[in-house]
Simulated scan of single mutants.
Amino acid sequence: MLEARADGTVLAFDFGLKRIGVAVGNTFLRQAEPLNIIHAPTNDGKFAEVAALIGNWQPVLCVVGLPLHPDGESHEMTQRCRRFANQLQGRFKLPTILVDERYSSAVLNGKRGAHIDDDAAALILQQYFDENP
């Protein structure tokens, strides 16, 4: 994955097979906000929505949550998220960074409702900001 080289908007993604949570922030304020949930049923539909978000927000960086087992080992979704991150970087020519999301579920545990995916993306992005001053 490439490193960010510029200040500006950052989009974060919590990738899932059914939904992709999206959050936004910027390198100046370093505050993540839930933005959107992508519900498209096909990969082409998902990437069309991602393309629209990238066109609107003009990010300098994308952040993707990387799910791992508690012991740090990979599983099926780990590989799918890596692939999604590689596709973001390849299709949109944007630096894309993977962020360990093992504990975002624990933070959101107990929260139910329509906005959990974009809240998860916001947690992932905030973690990135907090760990990369």
Results as ranks from 00 to 15, higher is better:
129 F>E: 06
29 L>T: 07
22 V>N: 07
129 F>T: 04
17 L>F: 05
32 A>S: 13
89 Q>L: 08
90 G>P: 04
3 E>K: 15
6 A>G: 09
79 Q>I: 01
103 Y>C: 00
49 E>T: 04
37 I>G: 00
72 G>M: 03
3 E>R: 12
37 I>M: 08
8 G>E: 14
104 S>V: 07
108 L>Q: 08
115 H>L: 07
56 N>G: 07
103 Y>L: 12
50 V>D: 04
66 L>F: 02
99 V>T: 03
110 G>H: 02
77 M>A: 10
105 S>M: 06
85 A>F: 05
129 F>S: 03
42 T>N: 09
24 V>H: 11
81 C>D: 01
54 I>C: 01
36 N>L: 10
26 N>K: 11
44 D>V: 12
130 D>H: 07
110 G>Y: 01
124 I>C: 03
66 L>T: 01
126 Q>N: 03
99 V>Y: 00
93 K>D: 13
89 Q>F: 08
30 R>M: 11
48 A>E: 10
11 L>A: 13
118 D>I: 01
49 E>K: 13
117 D>V: 01
38 I>M: 05
40 A>S: 11
86 N>I: 02
114 A>S: 12
55 G>W: 00
35 L>K: 07
101 E>P: 02
64 V>S: 04
21 G>I: 04
133 P>G: 14
91 R>L: 15
49 E>W: 00
88 L>F: 09
30 R>F: 10
63 V>E: 04
92 F>Y: 11
114 A>I: 02
30 R>N: 10
35 L>T: 02
110 G>M: 06
74 S>C: 11
57 W>F: 15
127 Q>M: 02
85 A>Y: 05
121 A>C: 08
92 F>R: 03
34 P>Y: 13
64 V>Y: 01
123 L>D: 06
47 F>N: 03
62 C>M: 12
18 K>P: 03
59 P>Y: 09
2 L>T: 10
